[in-house]
Simulated assay, not measured.
Amino acid sequence: MGFFSKAKKAAQDAAQQAQQAMNQGGQPPQGQAGDGYVHVQGAGPVDPAAFGGPSTAPVAENDPIWEPINGISLQDYADLAKDCQARGVNDEAGMITVAQEKGWDPADTKAALDGWVARMGQSQAVGQQFRRFLGY
């Protein structure tokens, strides 16, 4: 499974786990509003982070979640991902090789790849920004 597939699968698994946790009360969600929260009849908005999923809460521009990881920003990561996609590289080892061509340290790159995926698992805002940087 390629690196991008792993990130997508992790996000899907987190969303599915959050959905299942919300449904354990025996009452399925009544719908999903445009605010990113799942609404259950008789309850207020539920953030999937309460059940181990990525948060749907807004993230301030100065939040530490946006800080570069070992000097690699989310924009840098997206630029690397675009370059790798253009070359047909779809695994972590290949991405690290391409990053080395750019002069990036392999250990820093590995930490950044893992760190940004983890942050996407914490906050949907990070994944959304990453997709914007990719041009999606």
Rank of each mutant, 00 (worst) to 15 (best):
R119N: 08
D35Y: 09
G121Q: 08
Q19A: 15
P48K: 03
A11W: 02
K82D: 03
Y77E: 04
D35F: 07
A21L: 03
L80T: 10
N23G: 13
P54Y: 04
A14D: 01
A112R: 00
F133W: 12
D79H: 06
G53T: 03
A81D: 09
A93L: 14
G121T: 10
A107E: 13
T97W: 02
G26F: 11
Q128S: 03
Y136Q: 15
K110V: 04
H39F: 08
E61R: 07
V40K: 05
A112H: 03
L113N: 02
Y136F: 14
V38F: 06
V46R: 06
E61F: 06
H39A: 05
Q20V: 10
I96D: 00
D83Q: 13
P64W: 12
M22D: 01
L113Q: 01
A57C: 08
G115W: 07
D13M: 05
M22K: 09
N23V: 04
N70T: 09
P58W: 10
V40R: 01
G71V: 12
S5N: 08
T97L: 11
G127T: 13
N70S: 14
V40L: 07
L80G: 11
N70A: 13
V46P: 01
V126I: 15
G53Q: 04
V89R: 05
Q122W: 01
A93G: 07
A125H: 00
A33W: 08
Q41I: 08
A112S: 14
A107S: 13
D13S: 06
P106F: 11
A93E: 01
D13C: 08
Q12L: 14
Q124L: 06
V98K: 00
P64M: 13
F130C: 11
M1W: 14
I96F: 08
Y77H: 08
F133S: 09
R87E: 14
G34V: 11
G31N: 11
L80A: 11
G25S: 13
L74E: 00
P58I: 03
G26Q: 05
G135N: 13
D79R: 06
G2P: 03
G36N: 11
L113R: 00
A21H: 02
R132A: 14
V89N: 01
G52K: 10
D105C: 08
D114Q: 02
G71H: 10
Q20S: 07
A15V: 00
R131E: 15
S55I: 08
D63T: 05
A18M: 13
P29H: 09
K6Y: 02
G71L: 12
F133G: 05
